[in-house]
Nucleic acid binder design. Sequence first.
DNA 1: ATGAAAGCGCTAACAT
DNA 2: ATGTTAGCGCTTTCAT
Lengths: 334, 334
Amino acid sequence: MASGTGPHGGGNARPTMADIAKELGVAKITVSRALSSHSTVKDSTRKLIRETAERMGYRLNVSARNLRQQRTRTIAVVIEMAPSHDRLMSEPYPLSLLGGIMQKLTGAGQNMVLTTIDLFAEHPPSTDGVILLGQGVHDDAAAAIEAMGLPYVVWGAAHGPPERIVVGSDNRAGGRLAADYLLGRGRTKLLFLGETQHGEVEDRLAGFEAGLTGSDAGIVNRIACAFTAAAGREAVSRLLDQGRMFDGIFAANDAIAMGAIEAVEAHGLAVPADVSVVGFDDSPGASIFSPKLSSIRQDWPVGGELLAQKVLDLVAGHTVVSRVMPVELIIRES
Amino acid sequence: MASGTGPHGGGNARPTMADIAKELGVAKITVSRALSSHSTVKDSTRKLIRETAERMGYRLNVSARNLRQQRTRTIAVVIEMAPSHDRLMSEPYPLSLLGGIMQKLTGAGQNMVLTTIDLFAEHPPSTDGVILLGQGVHDDAAAAIEAMGLPYVVWGAAHGPPERIVVGSDNRAGGRLAADYLLGRGRTKLLFLGETQHGEVEDRLAGFEAGLTGSDAGIVNRIACAFTAAAGREAVSRLLDQGRMFDGIFAANDAIAMGAIEAVEAHGLAVPADVSVVGFDDSPGASIFSPKLSSIRQDWPVGGELLAQKVLDLVAGHTVVSRVMPVELIIRES
DNA sequence: ATGAAAGCGCTAACAT
DNA sequence: ATGTTAGCGCTTTCAT
């Protein structure tokens, strides 16, 4: 290992701007200016300095610059816990949300540090702002971030203090669309599957209920249920074992919906013949599941871009407002 | 906006250790020691300093500490491009690989900055080491990282210089397992779908070919094909339109396999009755696709943990070796 | 167009 | 158990 210029560092200490300056007999500030193409530096000196820096293997010390400039060009993305394999596609927030954030940040020359709420509190990275994905039960996470005094924005439901900047989908409208879908199929005994401690799910249920008022349909059961296929399967299985009947299901996400469908079929019922099911997110699996899943689509990439844009605006000192994004009913077979 | 303690900072400049020290009439090094629970500080002073820091709203300036300590407790994870929505589950590398990395880094108190190769080169973040996901065509990415002189490890195939630390699955063995699977079903006219410019795919094909030698089966077509369902669908569709026949497919990942199956069925053939198909990755969609997809499983989370552990070991100056991880054939319906 | 001085906020090293 | 000094590497400010 570490033979010559292996995968490790060079071995010798890195040269600094002072080293380059000494080598060339100029002031280190001139080196700084030449390398950052900042001020008026004679073309010939700039060229000379750049070549010398290259030859000596110079690398900018980012920590030093960050300290001097009092900014880091870095935004923290805080998730509530590490994504794990058994949560299908890492629900509730998929990679495409991260992708949207990343695309916008990258385009603005900003780095993105991905961290959990615990790590962020314990070993805070150096960042100019924070994007928080999900506000946690009882607002814990948002409160913790708020306490750090950094500009921040949140993905989720707008249940917090009004000055908090939130980007999220119109979950109430999504719930209403789900109600329309099931009502349109003549379903009357409905099941809601989802954890309403989760603000977004709470809104979905509220919209769902609102969409049912005035109809002859009603919710026969509300089951708290994690964002996984296993949880959906188990919840529905238990109900059917107890002889409870229903003919429509609104699941808080697609994974739950898939699990629910499996349980329904395992009990000898058919989807959509006996039970109609609508999920949420229109995740990649929805269109390849059998039956193809009807779902409420959220536009994750755009949501991510909005989050990134807004936190950058906050960092720049601009005025920023919250944003509710439209959702869309995708009708398939279920 | 910015009214009182809104989502923005406090307003006034942040207090520093010097401010706390002045307030209490102690030296700032004592404040430093008290807050980092480092050296021997009297319990009463520690308590006093902590309370004062809390009261004054003190936050550690991480850039300053990073500069002073010459380390950042941060590892960069470099991906070749931003994840996008049309690449199903963001192939070729899924979130669960990131999850494994994150879990290990988080546990070690390290932050993780996620970046693309371009951004990393243009605005290097301050990091102690690098995890590179994929080596890029012609090793471009690995070479760029190498030039930065930071400790780094790579996910992928071990096709680079021998001193490079690589963690990856045993793609050759995976290819052999795929051959076994198709041979065991009596298939003889085989199709390979995948981009062999990609080192891992190259190994999968090599193993596949090795597994076929001595049998009466052979590869009738090798189609270069991106890691998407659309690419798989199009490739197979074109072949069938041309009247080319085959009875077995090995696809470089599951998305390709699903697209291929859709094309096969669209042409009036059945899977697995007429054509057997085996994919790679055992991605979450494989088990919900219809027919359920047989696939070669990689253990992404463990791979991620290994990558993180190895880069941390490198940073710590320890000796580190490459690692090839076993793969497993998951037999389902296809 | 270039330079000199100063200092960002923190902690290692060496006192006391 | 606490303090003094110095300096990490860079860029801002004010000369020249």
